[in-house]
């Protein structure tokens, strides 16, 4: 038996900067994860569908546009609709500290703001993924 953690790295919404997402994707790959990268400007529906088809353990959302309070909870909800409530959802980007409790309340497991070492993200995923 060979379990391998699969992570969907997705950029919901309209901002066109995926440097951060790519750095994280690379770090996750180097940690031995299979990273499915979907590119820019994904709708929450596309993200949920891709997560379903790829049967991922983790959905990592990156967003710099400020729309996180709308888009992150939407992804959580759509995954639940698809009976994928076990999927670990994490987020990253320029997200104000004051928004973080609300996002966690909505079902995002953790938010990683700028300056987080990639090793911390890897560690968090390793600890929290339930196979």
């Amino acid at each position: 038996m060979e379990k391998r953690i699969r992570v969907l790295v997705a950029k919901p919404g309209l901002d066109g900067h995926d440097r951060g997402a790519k750095v994280v994707a690379r770090a996750l790959r180097d940690a031995g994860f299979e990273v499915i990268y979907t590119g820019l400007r994904q709708t929450p529906e596309q993200i949920a569908e891709a997560a379903l088809e790829e049967d991922v353990n983790v959905v990592a959302l990156s967003l710099l546009s400020g729309a996180h309070n709308t888009l992150f909870p939407k992804v959580v909800e759509l995954l639940k609709e698809r009976e994928m409530q076990h999927v670990l959802i994490v987020g990253g980007g320029v997200i104000p500290d004051s928004d973080i409790p609300g996002l966690k309340q909505a079902g995002v497991a953790e938010i990683f703001t700028p300056g987080t070492p990639t090793a911390a993200i890897v560690e968090f995923i390793k600890v929290h993924v339930t196979q």
Partner: peptide, 21 residues
């Protein structure tokens, strides 16, 4: 799959995003 780390970046969906829905 990376022969050194065992991980992989699977990027084929980037060009097939429209099919997702």
């Amino acid at each position: 799959t990376s022969p050194f780390f065992g991980g992989a970046i699977l990027g084929d969906r980037i060009r097939m995003n429209e099919l997702t829905m």
